[in-house]
């Protein structure tokens, strides 16, 4: 464990908690892409099946349980409890265009052709594009609530910190995972235009609104 991975995990945890609290307290999921949240629930489910097969550490196990629990709770709030506030018209990204290619790629390019490994690889590839429905929804509505931009910033920062973690581990541990690194680079690149808007607008107290 190194400081970059720790702060990456804490940033990821913050994002998940921010979103859950925002929906719970405002009793509304307006502006939130339910499709992205479903994809994240799939990412955690397919990645953390090793909860059933191996124990790494209390930290590892407890964080995985929290991620899975919060992501399903978020999906439940969006599609069940506060479904009346779900903006289905703007959450129109065709997720099958993500899941099918990612599924195919996971079968073709992986470290080991075993079920758990292919599911893990699928989860890594899917996570790199899981935020697209959310970013697409913001581009369609042309704006995002400030709390949602904080959620997105933490979500984007987490994998950016993981990239530094992988540089650290390559240099100090001689360890690297090419699949995780390439997917992590793609994932972080997808946030770049949002990061630019976040820094130039939200951090200056303005509302995040895209030129319609």
């Amino acid at each position: 464990m190194n400081i970059f991975r720790l702060f990456g995990d804490l940033s990821h945890l913050a994002a998940i908690i921010i979103l859950l609290l925002k929906i719970w307290k405002s009793r509304s999921c307006a502006g939130i892409s339910g499709k992205s949240q479903i994809l994240f629930a799939i990412v955690f489910t397919t990645r953390y099946l090793d909860l059933l097969t191996s124990f790494i550490s209390l930290y590892n196990t407890s964080m995985k349980m929290i991620y899975i629990g919060c992501s399903y709770a978020t999906v439940y709030l969006i599609y069940a409890k506060f479904r009346a506030t779900y903006d289905g018209n703007h959450d129109s990204f065709r997720v099958e265009f993500l899941i099918v290619p990612v599924g195919g790629l996971a079968v073709l390019i992986n470290h080991d052709f075993s079920l758990l490994e292919i599911l893990w690889t699928f989860s890594i590839y899917l996570e790199s594009v899981a935020i697209l429905p959310q970013l697409f929804m913001i581009s369609k509505t042309g704006e995002a609530e400030t709390i949602t931009t904080h959620y997105l910033f933490c979500q984007g920062l987490y994998r950016a910190l993981y990239l530094i973690n992988w540089i650290w581990r390559f240099y100090f541990e001689g360890f690297f995972d090419m699949i995780a690194i390439v997917a992590g680079v793609v994932q972080t690149i997808l946030y770049c235009d949002f990061f630019y808007l976040y820094v130039t607008k939200v951090l200056k107290g303005k509302k995040l609104s895209l030129p319609a």
Partner: peptide, 10 residues
Amino acid sequence: LVDGGAKDEL
């Protein structure tokens, strides 16, 4: 160098 197995990460 070890490639693969970033399974100790989240």
